[in-house]
């Protein structure tokens, strides 16, 4: 009981900056949804049920153009495919002592930002940590959408421009500090950024959709890094029959990652 509450409160603390960052982005989304012709309720319903930024923005242009449902489904699949990788990563970080029905709820809250805070934590994550972050992030995302859709252009352009970098600041706050301890992360981060620039500016490559670009870069850079510098397996020996034997080694994980 106590540990659930502690995990939930820990998640809420991580959720504060996420909710604030979401607010700015979802406000913009609400404004654009209103321009597309959606009602405030419909805009809020999209944010509440989808909880994703890039996918929702992309959907607006398809809905606005009266595109087909198949086109919308494929578009969402491609843009949000990175969640497949993140979900896979989170499945490995989730504390297996909790019943597996929690996965259905944890899955709903997989976003770039919630993934960022959960993946960066030492040890295993309680589902209640996810719930704590979701308890602030989901209202932040939805309320920002409602206000943006209802109010149109309340915030001046200069404020929206400033708020738009909040989310990137959060990402950098997650990836840079560990790179001071593990220097191999520096080429990993720089490599991903350079590839990002290549896909953005090289003619031909800049035709690839941004959702695909993220997936390609993530897979290529992580695979190359894993080949060059594998993380030492401590508990491989006990893994002969997989299933149950690995629950206890969570604590050792961060130490092996530290260098």
């Amino acid at each position: 009981m106590g540990s659930r509450k502690r995990a939930f409160i820990g998640g809420m603390k991580a959720g504060v900056p996420i909710a604030l960052g979401y607010f700015a982005v979802s406000f913009t989304f609400g404004m654009m949804a209103a321009q597309t012709g959606l009602s405030v309720f419909q805009s809020a319903l999209i944010s509440l049920t989808n909880l994703t930024s890039a996918g929702q923005f992309a959907a607006l242009s398809i809905i606005g153009a009266g595109g087909s449902l198949l086109e919308l489904a494929l578009n969402q699949l491609i843009i949000n495919l990175r969640y497949l990788l993140m979900g896979f990563s989170i499945s490995q970080k989730l504390d297996r002592n909790y019943p597996s029905f929690h996965k259905f709820f944890v899955a709903f809250g997989i976003t770039d930002e919630i993934y960022a805070v959960c993946a960066a934590r030492p040890g295993k994550n309680s589902p209640y940590y996810h719930y704590g972050a979701m308890a602030l992030a989901i209202p932040g995302w939805t309320i920002g959408t409602i206000l943006g859709a209802a109010a149109g252009q309340i915030l001046p352009q200069i404020v929206m421009s400033a708020l738009s970098v909040a989310i990137y600041g959060m990402f950098l706050a997650v990836i840079i500090p560990p790179a001071k301890k593990n220097h191999f992360l520096i080429p990993v981060i720089l490599g991903a950024m350079v590839l990002g620039a290549v896909f953005k500016y090289v003619p031909g490559l800049n035709k690839v959709s941004s959702g695909f670009v993220i997936i390609i870069i993530t897979v290529v850079v992580s695979a190359v890094a894993a080949l060059i510098r594998p993380i030492k397996p401590e508990a491989e020996a006990v893994a002969a029959d997989g299933e149950a034997s690995l629950v206890t080694k969570a604590e050792g994980e961060e130490a092996e990652h530290a260098d």
Partner: peptide
């Protein structure tokens, strides 16, 4: 390595 590559 995934979160670092992905977030970067």
């Amino acid at each position: 390595y995934m979160p670092y590559a992905c977030l970067a």
